[in-house]
Computed example of a mutant assay.
Amino acid sequence: MVTEEDVLTVLKEVSDPEIGLNVVDLGLVYGIDIEEDGKVFVRLTLTAPGCPLHETISRAAEMAIETLDGVKEAHVEVVWDPPWTPDLISDEGRRLLGL
């Protein structure tokens, strides 16, 4: 069965093109639910509510998750609560951004 760590690993391949950092290290992933039937549900946010790349990032995340063995479907829900802040960027993300 696929694990949360597996999902996070493939989500590190999905970047916010405006910032150039993956959604995991940006702190955009708010939750992962994995069902026994192979469905994966991810809640993520974006850096700004009006982000024009909303659908592009969501679909890229779903496609990345669906490459995992055992995943039959992936669904990404974009949420806005709590609002994203730069405080959510991981230590690795800060390093990569030179912060």
Score class of each variant (00 low, 15 high):
Pro82Ala: 08
Ser58Glu: 11
Lys39His: 14
Ala64Trp: 02
Thr85Ile: 10
Gly27Val: 13
Leu46Lys: 00
Thr45Cys: 12
Gly27Lys: 15
Met63Asp: 12
Val24Tyr: 04
Thr67Gln: 11
Pro82Ile: 05
Gly93Trp: 06
Arg59Gly: 09
Leu99Ala: 10
Lys39Arg: 10
Leu46Asp: 05
Arg59Tyr: 10
Val7Asp: 00
Val71Arg: 02
His54Lys: 01
Thr45Val: 08
Glu77Met: 02
Asp16Gln: 06
Gly93Tyr: 11
Glu62Asp: 06
Asn22Tyr: 04
Ala61His: 13
Lys39Asn: 09
Ile57Phe: 03
Thr9Gln: 15
Val29Phe: 15
Gly38Ala: 07
Asp25Lys: 10
Val71Tyr: 02
Ile34Ala: 09
Val23Pro: 15
Leu11Val: 13
Val79Pro: 07
Thr85Lys: 05
Leu21Val: 11
His75Gln: 15
Asp6Gly: 05
Ser58Gly: 09
Pro17Ile: 14
Thr67Lys: 12
Val40Gly: 08
Pro83Cys: 04
Leu11Pro: 06
Val24Ala: 04
Leu96Gln: 06
Glu92Met: 11
Asp16Thr: 02
Asn22Gly: 08
Pro83Ile: 04
Asp87Pro: 13
Gly20Ile: 05
Ile57Asn: 00
Val79Tyr: 09
Pro17Asp: 15
Glu73Thr: 09
Ala64Val: 06
Thr85Leu: 10
Thr3Tyr: 08
Ala64Glu: 01
Leu11Arg: 04
Ile65Gln: 06
Ile65Asn: 06
Pro17Lys: 01
Gly31Phe: 14
Gly70Pro: 09
Val78Trp: 01
Ile34Phe: 10
Ser15Asn: 06
Arg43Cys: 04
Glu5Phe: 08
Phe41Val: 11
Val78Asp: 08
Gly31Cys: 10
Asp87Asn: 14
Gly98Gln: 12
Pro52Leu: 00
Ala60Phe: 08
